[in-house]
Design a protein around this nucleic acid. Structure first.
Length: 801
RNA sequence: GCCGCUGUGGUGGAAUCGGCAGACACACCGGACUUAAAAUCCGUUGAGGGCAACUUCGUACGAGUUCAAGUCUCGUCAGCGGCACCA
């Protein structure tokens, strides 16, 4: 009988659907396992071959866990708010909700055709009011706890489209759509105080099992640094607060720099005699887009303040103050002490402006370049610090500054607060109202969800307001506080909002009264295993950890961290080794692959393609090897004999395979797990028959990877029940060991012979057997043994002279 | 510039603790079956030398540690991804 994959796959997908085979139960007495993949953005292009890599991987884990007796939650949903849909809607004059609906339908059909064991009863969609009600609710709690606030922020503004752009839409300083110039424009925006959680977000990385590179990039993104805040006196009177990570080098501070946005410039305006020049520089800096500022990074610019000088608290000397855009207002205090001898940027600036460079840490040549090494240097030219190491000097100077009331130790983070407003239509409305009398007032929780009003046009206004601002009926409302006239917030939430808590909703997706019941959240607890792309490690992953910690503080969830384990898959590249994209013309459509080879082959190939964590190029010819494997598996149907125990010849191979496949799935080495199954199949072919006990194990191991063919063969051979209901096969460590093993015999590290010995042979027996070998014996003739190395199970190496 | 990842046959990739480099596949070549092709099955395949047994070289490059290095240490180069003056 032919392996008719399309008929088989359709059949089993129908049966699983009908029987609700993969539904997570509400039987809270069973041990639970929560496997999660990032829910997709349902784009108009349909599923990409990259999606199934992650989905199949955790599908394998989920299917294995079910056989291991767990109540498994493996859900799927749609992260459906976002720009491409909105842009498509604008262009084609279709409501984004309709576009979303169509895209979701397509994605769902495609995912189903892959035989993924998602629990479709728990499907969620971030754009449905039942869902975003709770995104809005969480926002309100944040506002009430002082974590949401309004702030004037620079946004990207396309001068030709007259539209506010997201950072993703700005390519090389130009508008992604029209190529027009993008500048910064200041707008009042909602912000979320993620910085308040910076330390906890960093510390709790120790508690979770994330792959190392995810942890390091999160830690780098948070960017904690320790140093000191020091007050420098000025001739203007006011003290200027600076931040430094190298307080030890204070004696080498020969000038100061403040950012062009620093408020003291306004304060000192009439004391600065060259204020015209300074103001011109400020204006120049303000005009620069982020891109320009980056471009200028190489060349330092600045203006010296005439009329105001700083006073170094350590030396008591007057030093000049400069304004320069290499100092950012958004980090530290917006002002620095410049130590050109020991900071590369300060060194460059000092060279350009002819400022004195003083060596205060010995070890380099400060005339040639800044000496920044903290580990080896010794303090010089630093008064009381002379002779100390950098580390000791830091401690001593901070103590001294503290005594003088001039400074203290201070920790800073690179992490910035989260800009939470978007001037867009297709997002969750922010449930806030502005009242002239009461300021920003949250709407009453009973009014949630605040529905996105229907709209004809989804374009921003000419001055960059959200499309919602045109809906005056909706905008004009009454103040929930005083009852007077008021206006709704017309900005919407960013796409990251819905994905910051979605894993909780899966636990209890139809709950109308809470985001999820306490009971469900207690039971499902943390996500046990979360897999997703590296591109989400710093934004989505950090944002959702932040929201979760906030919910933890409210007492809603019982874990500090949402995800116990996080892994990441590599990208699937085009056949030419480049990133797949429409413009490169190297996109592979999963539908075509499924049609030609079947879902099982597709799944198998995506797992066999290479190291799961690394990117791998697609290969249309390699996929045939996986199809061939399934054809050969199917052909076993004609080789099945009765038998309730493993046959003698295949016993060890089977135990070994169970062990290897079991372990490889846990460590995401799907490619070698499949290679092992292929080897086993080759051995079965050598053996010329397979009995039912063996077939049962083989199909149980294959089922997570290629579920349709496994179910069909299971049924055909009447193995009882369904393949997805059986128990995960067990292995006996003792039966994984072959009775004999081949040992390599080396002389001076070169292989001379191979001997077959009992696996249990002792070191002495191995050595004796090696020496007894004819070739070895002849080569050793007349030579002295210097050293003998015996590694049981591997080799014997004899060093002779 | 900084951070992270990677570098192994013609190709994708294997190789727990330092212990037989190239598992498992793809492709190629040869053979069987066939009128023929496809499919399938069997076999060869890192490079060089030798009739052969065998032997030399070989994991980006250069050093080092070791009986033994793809694996560890130091340095260099190349590619990919991220960040962008964070004091």
């Amino acid at each position: 009988m032919k392996y008719d994959f399309s008929q088989i796959e359709k059949k089993w997908q129908g049966i699983w659907d009908e029987k609700n085979t993969f539904a997570a139960t509400n039987d809270y007495s069973k041990p639970k396992y929560y496997a999660l993949v990032e829910f997709p953005y349902p784009s108009g292009q349909g599923l990409h071959v990259g999606h199934p890599r992650s989905y199949t991987a955790l599908d394998i884990v989920a299917r294995k866990r079910r056989l291991q007796g767990y109540n498994v939650l493996y859900p799927m949903g749609w992260d459906a708010f976002g720009l491409p849909t909105e842009n498509f809607a604008i262009k084609n004059h279709i409501h984004p909700a309709i576009v979303t609906e169509q895209n979701v339908a397509r994605f769902k059909q495609q995912l189903k055709s892959l035989g993924l064991s998602f629990d479709w009863n728990r499907e969620i969609n971030t754009t449905s009011p039942e869902y975003y009600k709770w995104s809005q609710w969480i926002f309100l709690q944040m506002f009430k706890h002082g974590l949401a606030y309004k702030k004037e922020m620079a946004v990207n503004w396309c001068t030709s489209c007259k539209v506010v752009l997201a950072n993703e839409e700005v390519v090389n300083g130009c508008c992604e759509r029209c190529g027009g110039e993008v500048v910064r424009k200041v707008k009042s925006q909602w912000m979320l105080k993620i910085t308040e959680y910076a330390q906890r977000l960093l510390d709790d990385l120790d508690e979770v099992d994330y792959i190392e590179r995810v942890k390091t990039s999160q830690a780098n993104w948070i960017g904690r640094s320790t140093g000191a805040e020091v007050k420098f006196g000025t001739t203007a009177g006011e003290e200027l607060l600076i931040y430094t990570t190298r307080p030890d080098t204070i004696f080498g501070a020969t000038y100061m720099v403040i950012s062009p946005e620093h408020p003291y410039l306004k304060l000192w305006a009439d004391k600065i005699s060259n204020m015209d020049e300074v103001a011109a520089y400020q204006e120049e800096a303000a005009k620069k887009s982020d891109f320009d500022r980056t471009e200028m990074a190489k060349d330092k610019t600045g203006v010296k303040l005439v009329g105001v000088e700083g006073i170094n608290p350590a030396t008591g000397k007057n030093i000049p103050i400069f304004v320069s855009d290499y100092v950012l207002m958004t980090y530290g205090t917006g002002a620095i002490m410049a130590v050109p001898g020991h900071d590369t940027r300060d060194w460059e600036f000092a060279k350009k402006f002819g400022l004195p460079i003083i060596e205060v840490v010995k070890g380099g040549n400060v005339e040639e370049e800044a000496f920044t090494d903290c580990a080896t240097g010794i303090m010089v030219n630093s008064g009381m610090l002379d002779g100390l190491s950098v580390e000791d000097a830091k401690v001593k100077i901070i103590d001294w500054l503290k005594e003088q009331g001039k400074g203290e130790a201070k920790v800073n983070f690179k992490l910035r607060d989260w800009v939470f407003s978007r001037q867009r239509y297709w997002g969750e409305p922010i449930p806030m109202v502005y009242c002239e009398k009461c300021g920003w007032v949250p709407i009453d929780e009973s009014e949630l969800p605040l529905r996105l009003p229907d709209c004809e046009s989804f374009e921003q206004t000419d001055d960059g307001q959200s499309p919602l601002s045109k809906m005056t009926d909706w905008v004009n409302t009454t103040c929930p506080h005083c009852g007077g006239p008021a206006q709704r917030e017309t900005d919407t939430m960013p796409q990251w909002a819905g994905s910051s808590w979605y894993f909780l909703r899966y636990m209890d997706p139809h709950n109308e009264n809470e985001l999820a019941s306490k009971e469900a959240m207690e039971y499902w607890g943390q996500v046990d295993w979360y897999n997703g792309g590296m591109e989400h490690t710093t934004l989505h992953l950090l944002y959702s950890r932040f929201w979760h910690k906030f919910l933890y503080d409210l007492g809603l969830v019982s874990n500090k961290e949402p995800y116990a384990k996080r892994t990441s898959h590599g990208m699937i590249l085009g056949e030419n080794g480049e990133k797949m994209s429409k413009s490169r013309g190297n996109v592979v459509n999963p539908d075509d692959i499924i049609k030609e080879y079947g879902a099982d082959t597709m799944r198998l190939y995506e797992m066999f393609i290479g190291d799961f964590e690394k990117s791998a190029p697609w290969s249309t010819s390699s996929i045939k090897g996986c199809k061939r494997f399934l054809d050969r598996l199917w052909a076993l149907n004609d080789m099945v004999v009765e038998g309730s125990e493993y046959s003698k010849e295949l016993e060890t191979p089977f135990h070994k395979t169970i062990k290897k496949v079991s372990e490889d799935i846990e460590s995401m080495k799907f490619n070698t797990a499949i290679a092992t199954l292929m080897s086993l199949l080759n051995e079965i072919y050598d053996h010329k028959s397979i009995n039912k006990a063996e077939l049962k194990t083989l199909l149980s191991l294959t089922q997570p990877f290629a579920p349709h063919i496994a179910e069909e063969m299971w049924e055909l051979n009447q193995l009882g029940g369904m393949a997805n209901e059986t128990k995960w096969p067990e292995y006996d460590e003792a039966k994984c060991i072959d009775s004999t093993v081949e040992i390599v015999v080396q002389l001076n590290g070169r292989i001379k012979s191979r001997i077959v010995v009992p696996t249990a042979a002792s070191k002495d027996e191995l050595l004796a057997a090696a020496k007894a070998d004819a070739v070895v014996k002849a080569e050793m003739e007349g030579k002295n043994i210097v050293k003998e190395i015996v590694v049981p199970g591997k080799l014997v190496n004899i060093v002779v002279k």
